[in-house]
Every structure is written in structure tokens, then in C-alpha cells.
Simulated assay, not measured.
Amino acid sequence: MGPWFRLAAIGGFLCVGFGAFAAHGITDPKAQEWLRTGAIYGFVHMLAAFAAGQRSGRGAALAPPLFLAGLVLFSGSLWAMGMGAPHGFGAITPLGGLAFMAGWAALAWSRPRPQVA
């Protein structure tokens, strides 16, 4: 999985950081919701990027970059708005959701690696 493994780990780190900031560093309820939602969706998909390394085939190879694109677009736009960016960033969020969905579809069409005895 190479670079995707590292990038997913960095993504997980960011998810924990933004989730903690939502819980302890910001008081606006809407901003907390955006930060928390971005963290939850992002963290789940970073774990999925790790799991994709257990599969083989083209679908499994496509899943991690799609999940990471989803993190940047979906979670990133929510985090940006939670940190005070214009609400227009919300127009990017659905593109990230589509990237997440495409990653799941790619995984669905991949095949498992053969088990080593």
C-alpha cells in the first residue's frame, strides 16, 4: 500500500485532532457539528483505506486514493467551515461524499488476497 498507508495515518491524526478541537476548543454548536462530522466520516474512511491493503486487484488499489480524496473534500470542507471559512465551502462537501462512495464501490469489486498458510 506504500504511500497510501502513511497518508491514511496522517488523515487519522487529523481526524483525532479536529474531533478533539470540536469537543474542547470551540463553543459554536454549528462549528462543533461540522468539525465532529468531518472527523467521524474521515476516521472511518482512513480505517477503510488501511483495510483496502488486505485486498488485491484494481478496485483495492483505487480505494485508498478515493478515500483520501474524500477526506480532503468532504472532511476538509467541513473542517474549513468549522474554523470560520465561508459557507460556500459546503459546495465541495458532496464531491467528497461521492469520492467516499466510489472508494466503497471500488472495494466491493476487488477480490481478497489469497490466504498464506
Rank of each mutant, 00 (worst) to 15 (best):
M1K: 15
G2F: 13
P3D: 15
R6K: 10
A9T: 08
I10L: 13
G11K: 14
G11T: 15
G12M: 02
F13V: 09
L14Q: 15
C15T: 00
C15Y: 01
F18M: 15
A20W: 04
G25D: 13
I26L: 12
P29Y: 14
A31K: 12
Q32P: 13
E33M: 05
R36K: 08
A39G: 08
I40K: 05
Y41G: 09
Y41M: 12
L47N: 00
L47Y: 01
A51P: 03
A52V: 12
S56P: 00
S56L: 07
S56F: 01
A60D: 06
A60L: 06
A61C: 10
A63I: 06
P64A: 07
P65N: 11
L68P: 06
G70K: 04
L71A: 00
S75M: 07
G76M: 01
S77A: 14
S77F: 05
M81N: 07
G82I: 08
M83S: 05
P86R: 12
G88C: 12
F89Y: 15
A91V: 03
I92C: 07
P94W: 02
L98A: 15
M101H: 11
W104C: 07
A105G: 11
A105N: 05
L107A: 03
W109K: 14
S110I: 04
P112R: 05
V116Q: 14
